[in-house]
Amino acid sequence: MKKVALSVVLIMVLAMLLSACGTQTASQKIKIALVLPSTVDDLSWSQGMTEGVKAVQKELGEDKVEVAISERLGNPTDAAAAVRQYASQGYDLIIAHGSQYQSILDEIAKEFPKTSFAYGTGYQAHDNIFAYDPQSQEGAYLQGIIAGKLTKSNIIGIVGPIEAGDAIKYNVGFQQGVKSVNPNADVRVAYTGSFGDIAKASELAKAQIDAGADILTGTAQQTVGAIKACAEKPGIYWLGNDMDQSSIAPDTVLTAQAYNWKDVVMQMVKFRQEGKIGGEHLVLSLGNGGIQIVVNQKLANVIPADVMALVEQTKKDIIAGKLTIELPK
């Protein structure tokens, strides 16, 4: 027993002796690190941000922007190690893409006062922390109008992940949007209890459809399973969230609320260049173009012109502040 323990200690000592030294290269580049809860190819939250950062890199030039990505760091413990390592490696802007990273940034940001950190959905911006906050209820409201107008069965299904954070904002906005044009419609909210179980989301979508829903929507990376389930039934439409998901079901995905992460990242880069390394609460809204409703062009004719006009008008009202969407208090 002792020997095993000793052997383990010995290996550790050996490892320490052979330790390598890190290399630090100073450059004019801006180095952006991205910490993701899911994967770069989840076709939702994480992929959206990844594409946003890549777009910034493309626009400013590969030689000006360096990007590093760590995925699958859903639990904050592992994410903290990643954030700290990026900070100590001299990354300028570290984006921890999830609400769960608030606590760890609070702590680490104090130790790296020159580094910019960012997280969201969140509101706690500090000296060198940006917080970004997509107003997902706004786009959801517009999608709710489309759903309320288009439903034939007057039943609309929501395939939710966990009742928290963005899912609440989205669902609340969506329900209000539906009610505003179709008070008789029944919006049925159900949750799978998981962010990533696509098979469960698929079954939930099937149950919604079998129970009469003809328009469905939902949030989180699990929804790809629900979209596919909808695609198997003709006449069922899906309203997406996070990013344009029409690639997996071009005849089913009508519209999507897409977050314009590129602008957010670009804004943070600009702030940094101007010497402002944090403290901003960056809102993504219809007003600033942070949220866009993407219409699947293949199905553009499904949405009648008057509905589209109403959506445009409501969008203007929201932007003008004439219409606010109440979130639960």
Partner: peptide
Amino acid sequence: HTNMYADNI
């Protein structure tokens, strides 16, 4: 069932 593959299916 789902006819697709995603992480942690």
